[in-house]
Amino acid sequence: MTHAVQLVGLHKSFGDLEVLKGIDFTVEPGQVVCVIGPSGSGKSTLLRCVNLLEQPTAGQVFVGGAELTHIDVDIDAARRKLGMVFQQFNLFGHLSALDNVTIAQRRVLKRGKRAAAEVAMRNLEKVGVADKAKQYPAQLSGGQQQRVAIARALSMDPAVMLFDEPTSALDPELVGDVLSVMRQLADEGMTMLVVTHEMQFAREVADVVLFMDEGVVVEQGAPARVIGNPQHERTKMFLHRVLNPTHADEAAAPS
């Protein structure tokens, strides 16, 4: 069986700063993999290397068996298999919600106007913002913007969805709407790689949780094990801080 995503010996440096120090893991079709870890540990960089928004310094990225890091790859075509959702939504400010969702369908997939709009409305409905189709991003709440962004990515029929802290920029009362959309996607069998600080979500939805620190995967496994019963000291410390934010000082000083 081909893996949905496979990373082999992935390294990434920014100048002298080595951010990813050899990452190996796989995501199987239909799996939800959550990446957790402290700020600055390289989670975003990892995700951005998967769709080559960052060029890895060394190592290979395979998506659906095809190597994205191959030097002759058509990266624009390869990226179509990967949908990405950003922390800051990144909706196109000059386009209505509907046009945000149709523009890449039309320009990249060359779908007709009506076909693209149909796909768009189906996905906007799915994420619960169909009634906002005519609105511009500035007129939408953060939670609505993020759901439009998810619809935009889904409309390209990706094989894998990448989420980089999709709820971190949201007001607390809006987080639930976005998480429930993601939960629904997971239930429908979408393959997802999710960087998140939402431990509850990781625990309930993820098939695999992956704890990263200082550019390496420290431990990975079922959420019950990684979150419920972590083996490594660094994982324990991180979880202690995240799960008891008001008692952070009780843990040992961060390394």
Partner: peptide, 12 residues
């Protein structure tokens, strides 16, 4: 982020 979102959707 605008360019990144566009590229991530497969735009050249």
């Amino acid at each position: 982020g605008q360019a990144e979102a566009a590229r991530s959707l497969g735009m050249s």
